[in-house]
Design a binder for these strands. Structure first.
Lengths: 329, 329
DNA sequence: GTGAAAGCGCTAACAT
DNA sequence: ATGTTAGCGCTTTCAC
């Protein structure tokens, strides 16, 4: 491997000039810059990142720690983050905490060790409570999850509003006994739950909600119990895509038809929600935009570390499909 | 930040002893080791990775470049790789080439720049043809895709066999006019196509296959044309999950029922293939095992670079569901 | 605008 | 078993 001194020799200049030319710093004549570029090409020189980092104490790397890499919501965010990072000549380290606080802590330490410029994180619930930027040696931006009082930059859905509107829609369809199944692992489930409660209260209806651990299998178990008790509720509301999957599995397993015997609705516009007859009504999140906003917030924070904490709240889109259709009682 | 010299001072030993103790090298007394560990804890010392890499010219990082991070097949592989890497105190850089040779080249360069110990890769087709390990400064293991004559370690499904068995199953169900839709972007589609051709030939049936660009949308367009021409074929076979999704979307859009009007089958046991009534017949891949085998192959190659090239071929599992059921003609 | 030289924090070779 | 020390390849003063 060619080193910077080889390039300097070939170009007939000092290593300092090569370094300046390659970093795009001022104080290099056009002639020198051209000679350096030619030498770099001729030798197929690539700067040694380890040396560069050791000396400069900076990196051009960002971290992205998501809580479930298998969730299309987060993969789409990853795509957005990479696209923007790519344009800024930044690199992204993608990590999957798998909803496990220990893994999350491991990756946060890794980010520190790697000396990243900043991190985008969808935190587990334990971490989120009492999260402070000052605990981390790098700028931090939250995605998907944050508390009302989190003192950290964040990009999230308006979960309360989304929960409210989805519930409102079901009520407008004539549903009365609406059961809300919400994820217990993140903050989003709780916030959507609040929206549900508000909408039910506004309509003078009695709420009936159940927290569920974040696995489709678990949701399926709960729903199978629910669906085997008669009379059935009018509707089932799932606070995320995983739970929605469990709900559909359970309905299939027990032969309960929707919207005939029970209406269904949920969150996250996954591909299969359109494929299943007669389509599942969901709140769709502007996923790519959330990701893009997150990295833009992060880059802005890196550029000016002292700016005020910002939170971007995005509105979900209600996609009405067959699963919540009014049925003649 | 504390440096190694601070630890040495605190522990009352030399920096060399600290380095040895931390790297688990021999030549350190138990007493010294304990003193070092105490000093490390007291100072909250973390080795500077950039310095360590610069000096040792090694890293404990692996690269994983997948061609579609949104595909559950690859996310599951990522999970397996991370699990095993974690146990070996290795770190994984996960990258998404998005089926784009340019992005792929970018990430391979990045791996070189980062000085990774090895890379697991699902290559794009252009890269795969003419791939040599000697082109890359790190050990390489292919997953999912490789050619018969690739001189690289690899872990793949037995695609020919899988294509053969899936076709054979449909033939056994009485299907005659079976159309095979296969992905044109990877090598797997072509190999599954070969299996299909062999099975059709063995049964004395005329093959009818069509290559498709790797996007569900594209598959949908092709299938919509196909399904609007009468008479319909007996069955549609999709060579991967994405195409299968497009097939189902098209069938729904045109109101073509399955298995009533046409039988369906495909590859990849995605969650929704079970949810859709009456279930889609697929070849399931041992995804997690493929990922685990890949990193184990890679670690073995890193340990002994000169060993013979190995290829691990895994057998798919045929999951028969309602979509391929024989219907009374 | 350019060059000489110091030194980032660590590992490994060598000495004891 | 332990210490001393020379760099790894680069960036960044500082002097010219």
């Amino acid at each position: 491997m060619a080193r910077i001194s080889d390039v300097a020799k070939k170009a007939g200049v000092s290593v300092a000039s090569v370094s300046r030319a390659l970093s795009g710093l001022p104080g290099v004549s056009e002639a020198t810059r051209i000679r350096v570029e030619a030498a770099v090409k001729a030798l197929d020189y690539r700067p040694d990142l380890a040396a560069r980092r050791l000396r400069s104490r900076r990196t051009n790397k960002l971290g992205l720690i998501v809580s479930d890499i298998c969730n299309p919501f987060f993969t789409e965010i990853g795509r957005a983050v990479e696209d923007v990072a790519y344009q800024h000549r930044m690199r992204v380290m993608l990590c999957n905490s798998d909803e496990d606080p220990e893994k999350e802590a491991f990756y946060l330490e890794m980010m520190r060790d790697e000396n990243v410029s900043g991190v985008i994180l969808s935190p587990t619930l334990p971490l989120l409570s009492g999260l402070k930027t000052s605990d981390h040696p790098f700028p931090l931006v939250l995605v998907d999850r944050c508390e009302r009082d989190s003192e950290v930059d964040a990009v999230v859905l308006d979960n309360f509003d989304a929960g409210f509107r989805l519930t409102e829609h079901l009520i407008a369809q004539g549903m009365r006994r609406i059961v809300f199944l919400y994820g217990s692992a993140g903050s989003t489930g709780a916030q959507r739950h609040q929206g549900y409660l508000a909408a039910m209260a506004a309509a003078g209806l009695a709420p009936d909600a159940e927290p569920i651990a974040p696995r489709a299998e678990r949701a399926r178990e709960v729903v199978e119990v629910l669906l085997s008790r008669k009379p059935l509720p009018d509707a089932l509301l799932a606070s995320n895509g995983l739970i929605l999957q469990g709900v559909v599995e359970a309905a299939r397993a027990l032969g309960v038809s929707f919207p005939g015997e029970i209406a269904l609705a949920g969150f996250d516009d996954m591909p299969w929600t359109r494929l299943i007859e007669p389509g599942i009504t969901v709140i769709a999140q502007p996923t790519y935009e959330i990701g893009r906003a997150a990295i833009e917030l992060l880059l802005a924070r890196i550029a000016s570390p002292e700016q005020a904490v910002r939170r971007l709240v995005m509105r979900g889109e209600l996609k009405i499909r067959g699963s919540s259709r009014k049925t003649s009682a």
